[in-house]
Amino acid sequence: MTLISRSRPATSLMPGVLPGAVLGSGLAAAAAITGLLRRDKPLHPVGHHGTGHLTVTDPAPDLGIEAIARTGTRPCRARWSRAMGLPQGWPDIEGLALRLEGAAPDGGDADLLFASTGSRAWNRYLLTMRGPGHFGRVTTLLPVRAGGRAVTFRLSPQPELPDVLPDQLPPSSYALEVARGTGGWERVGHVDVAWAEDDTSDRFDPVTHPLAGLEQYAFVTGLREPAYVAARAVARARPTTGGHHHA
């Protein structure tokens, strides 16, 4: 699948860019070295892709995010993966990328990236490891600005899962929730995905494919983007077939 290239949103050199860029450069170097040594994508090397829909049932128009401002359904694509690509049987960070069709400021597609974290106010910004067959709540980890304040998104499997689902594809339905600052989670709708065994070569990036109504904090942009650039530069996507075990 070929994606249409879009211009990168302008980011002014406001406070926060430089510290984030310094840390981001270190992450970029680590990602590049990992990819070259493994001869594949350094981040999220193997996964499953899926297609589905986001259905908004409890809109939050005050946040100014078009995709969740009113009730309705829009198509989406998704990719589930283990972030570090550690050997089979090892715990890893669960990752889920979501692409919402027509949700970008220019009418194109927009991306959100989720990872396994805690769900409380004190640990929702901390990554957590999950063992093979374990699926759970995933959040956008780093906050974005919407409606004049920090906002974080969360996907929660529906219904609640048993402790482990060995040799299963990811959950097919998630509640989509949003938190304002460190406040409680508010459900806005649900995401339903039909997962495939195979993978996709799509690249997901919330900085270059932003959701209309969201603004990336300068520090977050400086932290994330160098690692994305390095990962794409050394990426050699692998198919999910051929004996790779993902869950």
Rank of each mutant, 00 (worst) to 15 (best):
T2P: 11
R6C: 00
R8I: 01
R8V: 03
M14C: 05
A21C: 12
L23G: 01
G26L: 13
A29Y: 10
A29H: 10
A30P: 07
G35H: 05
L37Q: 09
R38T: 07
V46C: 12
H48Y: 11
T51S: 15
L54W: 03
V56I: 15
T57R: 12
T57L: 13
D58G: 11
P59V: 13
P61L: 04
G64H: 07
G64M: 11
I65W: 02
I68S: 07
R74G: 08
R74D: 03
C76L: 14
A78R: 13
A78C: 13
S81A: 14
G85F: 11
G85R: 11
P87N: 12
G89Q: 08
I93T: 15
E94Q: 15
R99M: 13
R99K: 13
G102K: 09
G102F: 07
A104M: 10
A104N: 03
P105R: 00
G107Y: 03
G108V: 04
D111V: 06
D111F: 04
D111C: 12
D111E: 14
L112T: 01
L113H: 04
F114M: 09
F114Q: 03
A115I: 12
G118Y: 02
S119G: 12
A121E: 13
N123G: 01
N123T: 09
Y125W: 11
L126V: 14
L126E: 15
M129Q: 06
R130K: 12
F135S: 05
T139K: 02
T139A: 11
T140W: 08
P143L: 06
R145P: 00
R145G: 01
A146P: 02
G148E: 11
F153T: 03
R154T: 05
S156C: 11
Q158R: 10
V164C: 14
P166D: 13
A175V: 06
V178C: 10
V178A: 04
V178Q: 12
G184M: 05
V188C: 07
H190R: 09
D192V: 10
V193S: 06
A194V: 15
W195Y: 08
A196G: 08
E197V: 07
E197N: 12
D198V: 14
S201F: 10
S201W: 01
D202H: 09
R203D: 10
R203E: 08
R203G: 05
P206F: 06
V207T: 03
T208F: 02
H209F: 09
L211E: 06
Q216C: 13
F219T: 00
G222L: 00
R224P: 00
Y228P: 00
A230F: 01
A233F: 02
A233P: 01
P239K: 07
G242W: 09
H244R: 15
H244Q: 13
H246F: 04
A247F: 07
